[in-house]
Amino acid sequence: MTTEPSEVASGDALVTALIGAVHDTILAHRDELCDLDRAIGDADHGHNMARGFEAVAAASDEIAALPFGKALQKIGTTLVMKVGGASGPLYGSALMAAGKAGEDAPTSLVEVVARLEAAVDAVKQRGKSDVGAKTMLDVLVPVTEALKAGPADPLATARGTAAEALEATRPMVATKGRAAFLGERSAGHLDPGARSSELIIDAVCDVVEGR
């Protein structure tokens, strides 16, 4: 931890900006996420995510005062307690693991990838799942892999990979979560968790780009 004032301020501002951007995009796509979930689940993914990120936004000042790693963990526990359903524990576990990967805000792509890998592992473990089951992992894993390769333009790579990976969930047959009960009928729809993951990645890219 540095005690240099401007550094601390920029850490604060980063967390505040990230919370604001993700909160905004989730609220703006709330109905769309519910509609996607209606096709293959129980139509509440948008409401659940909105409830979670509203709680995170309400605690934004308190969270931003924490060191970066602790802030991510706090966002994670808030999501676990507020989102409900399966996505709360999954997103919550992801952020808690990413937060535990280090105290200070990442300053390099390598550090970002390390946190993403911790998050992906946590989701796999929590959901007892992996890629190909039509879940958020089908966006998170390809994006992590693409960034791990050290692309020249990480932001464009993250956005492009997330968009392609999201679209790739459409023909997939769900084998995890409530959508799995639909079997073959789950094919032909985007996965709502993959869509919310893609939205969050986009929002994070916007914040990083604007800094």
Partner: peptide, 14 residues
């Protein structure tokens, strides 16, 4: 079913 187990595991850990 599924989510009940996932969420119970999470609850126990927390």
């Amino acid at each position: 079913l599924g989510g009940a187990e996932t969420n119970s595991e999470m609850a126990i850990e927390m």
